[in-house]
Every structure is written in structure tokens, then in C-alpha cells.
């Protein structure tokens, strides 16, 4: 089932085209990795999908309905976004940060149900021992988990994450992606912008390769070929297949 569909999407920033005529659809319950060189438009595409940026032309639909027709709170209950870097000047506790994800659901004060959802996301993300700690005292990995927990507290159907594994060590990179993968089993569509191809290869169901603001190729693992990667990044690579796993080694 198609969850999000982009049709002829153009996005320009200060006159220069960042996304050019992008048409693509994202299937429900899949983990989709958007990969491509720096400046290829990965973050921009995510931000357009959550209406943070307004495309110049084209439409984005969620369940066949234009996202422009959603009320802000309504959209926030459907699509959640985790930015790459989040700069809060006055940090809150873990619990308060996650509770903020209930904002689209809360009228005036949080109800018992909001507290319960918050607590269960805290448990899910393995943060229960630090639920009253301030988030600026956490490690990068813990903080990333807090932001994912907050996005999950929105109870979205689509989760967009910009570089969720940046700044994380190997163990936490795997942990975060495992969690995301598990979410897809519950029917949540997870779309990530990611640089680490090997990590993406291990966990993703689908790939979108972006180059210069255009979809260069898309599909399952099969599209990750020497030819495609070399064209995408302008470097030589060696692709090693081991059992059903694929590894990419860049050659200088």
C-alpha cells in the first residue's frame, strides 16, 4: 500500500534548485533509506514530506490526500520528524521531552493516557532509568533515543529521520536501526536519510538514490551495484557479497 506519494516535486532554495521533478512513492511498513552525496537533497525531501519546507511545485500526498489539506495537529499525529541536530537552549528532562510528543493530542493538560504513552515509549527506548535526567546530561546515543521516543509518542504512521545514526557509536547505530526496523513490523513506515551505506544495506527494505536533487535510482538491494554507487559518489568501490549480505568498500 502506498503511504506517501511525491508527484513532480520541485524545491528551490535561494533560486537554486535543490529538488528537481521528484516523483516517488513510499510503501507502508517499510524501512526506506534515502542515500546520496552531501547536498543531493536528502534532508530537503524529508522536510518537504513533513511540511516543514514548502515545495515550489508538485504535490505530496499521505494516504492519497494532499498534506496541505491537513490541519497542523492532524498532520503531527500522522507524520513525525526527527531532525539531525536539535538545539534546545533550555533542556528539559527525558520524560518532559518525550511528553512533548503528545502535544498534538493534548488539549490543555496531559491526561493519564498521554502519560502512559510517554512512559511506554520511554521503556521501549530503554530510557526508564534516566527518565528524570536532563537531556543535556545524556550521551549522544541516549539523546537520539529520546528524540525517537518523542516522535513515537506522537503515535505517527510515518516516521522521518534525518541521519539517525550520525554521532552514534557502532553499538548504538545498530541498536537504533533495530528499533526502527521493529517499528516497520507494526506497520509504521520509516524513512531515513543516511550516509552509511553498509548500515543502510543491513536494515533497509528499499533504497532511493538521490543525485543533484533527482532520483537517480530506486528499488531494493539489487540497485546497489558498483556502477550505480560509482556514478552516485564519483568514486571507485568494491562490492562484496557474503551470503545474503552486501558490503561496500570505497577504494581510493
Amino acid at each position: 500500500m502506498v503511504k506517501i506519494e511525491l508527484k513532480n516535486l520541485d524545491f528551490a532554495y535561494n533560486g537554486s534548485m535543490v529538488l528537481k521533478n521528484i516523483s516517488h512513492h513510499f510503501e507502508q511498513g517499510k524501512l526506506i533509506s534515502i542515500v546520496g552525496p552531501n547536498g543531493s537533497g536528502k534532508s530537503t525531501i524529508l522536510k518537504c514530506m513533513d511540511r516543514i519546507l514548502q515545495p515550489k511545485n508538485g504535490t505530496i500526498s499521505f494516504d492519497e490526500r494532499n498534506i496541505l489539506n491537513f490541519h497542523a495537529d492532524e498532520l503531527a499525529k500522522k507524520i513525525a520528524y526527527v531532525p539531525q541536530i536539535e538545539g534546545g537552549t533550555f533542556p528539559a528532562t527525558v520524560f518532559d521531552s518525550v511528553l512533548l510528543g503528545r502535544k498534538p493530542h493534548i488539549q490543555w493538560s496531559p491526561r493519564q493516557n498521554d502519560l502512559e504513552v510517554t512512559a511506554s515509549m520511554i521503556e521501549k527506548m530503554n530510557l526508564k532509568n534516566i527518565s528524570l535526567k536532563s537531556i543535556n546530561k545524556l550521551s549522544g546515543g541516549q539523546r537520539q533515543r529520546v528524540f525517537i521516543a518523542r516522535a513515537l509518542a506522537q503515535e505517527p504512521e510515518v516516521l522521518l529521520l534525518d541521519e539517525p545514526t550520525a554521532n552514534l557509536d557502532l553499538k548504538h547505530q545498530i541498536a537504533v536501526l533495530k528499533v526502527l526496523k521493529k517499528l516497520t513490523e507494526q506497520g509504521i513506515t520509516v524513512i531515513i536519510a543516511i550516509h552509511d551505506l553498509n548500515l543502510a544495506l543491513q536494515f533497509s527494505d528499499h533504497f532511493v538514490l538521490l543525485k543533484d536533487g533527482e532520483v537517480f535510482a530506486s528499488g531494493e538491494k539489487e540497485i546497489i551495484t558498483n556502477e550505480n554507487i560509482e556514478k552516485l559518489y564519483d568514486i571507485k568501490v568494491n562490492i562484496i557479497k557474503q551470503k545474503d549480505k552486501i558490503f561496500i568498500i570505497p577504494l581510493s
Partner: peptide, 18 residues
């Protein structure tokens, strides 16, 4: 709640429906 969301950053606030 809007003010709190803004404190976390414009993008997050936007995503929370602000």
C-alpha cells in the same frame, strides 16, 4: 505547549504541529 515546542527548535516544533 507551542512555546515549549519552539524551545526545542523550529523543525521539531513544526513537526509537532506548531
Amino acid at each position: 505547549w507551542n512555546i515549549r515546542s519552539l524551545n526545542t527548535g523550529d523543525e521539531t516544533a513544526n513537526s509537532l504541529g506548531v
